[in-house]
Amino acid sequence: MSEWWTYRPSDFLLFVPRTYYRLLEHYGAGAWPWQVAALAAGLAVLVALVRGRPGALRLALALLGAGWIAVAWLFLWGRLASIAWSADYAAPAFVAQGALMIVLAALPLRAVDVSKPRRLGASALVASALAYPLLAPAMGRPWAAAEVLLLFPDPTAIATLGLLALLPAGRRAALMIAPLGWCAFQGMTLWTMGAPEAGVLLGAATVALLLPLGRTVRRRRDRAARDRPPASPGA
């Protein structure tokens, strides 16, 4: 089509908010009590991040990778595709993301030396993914509609962005595409619906993009300091 630019985000919203939230609720009710196990796994990911040991990070990578595949199968294909044909296109990307994360988890990982702010930011992203289910009751929706990571896409993408911030740049780059893309797409969808969760998703994507930049800025500053000619005596 030659005039995609004439479309607004609302032109691609295929359902009313009530339909979407009821879908979340029915899916959540059907998934119970797996939310408990998923939250426990999410806590393990957070602990791995805080400790920063390569073995724990690899385990966290595998856990989240399995979550991406579960979300694709159970939520995107199993539920969301019934009201959003875009889910049929997103699901294979979720499976590919999960598979890639599991493969990379099997490879050796050297310890990553990251700054305190970056580790703090990464942990904050995972913590916000763990707290994400609280948004449903906070918005007056039933607990069954609470979105738990590893079962629902939004908190899974946010937690993944947090974990990736601690991986070497080479591994991080390819793995960032799907969670960033989902945060952008879903953030726009929720924004069009007038849902405040949109801010969480778009904010998480922004933080994830900024976290690695802190190191680059610091390196440039250090290099500039090294290259600066020594001050002349008496100056």
Binding site: L14, F15, R22, L23, I83
Partner: peptide
């Protein structure tokens, strides 16, 4: 458009 896209939700 939008209003009848209710998926498998029996009540809707």
């Amino acid at each position: 458009w939008i209003t009848f896209n209710v998926g498998d939700d029996a009540d809707l």
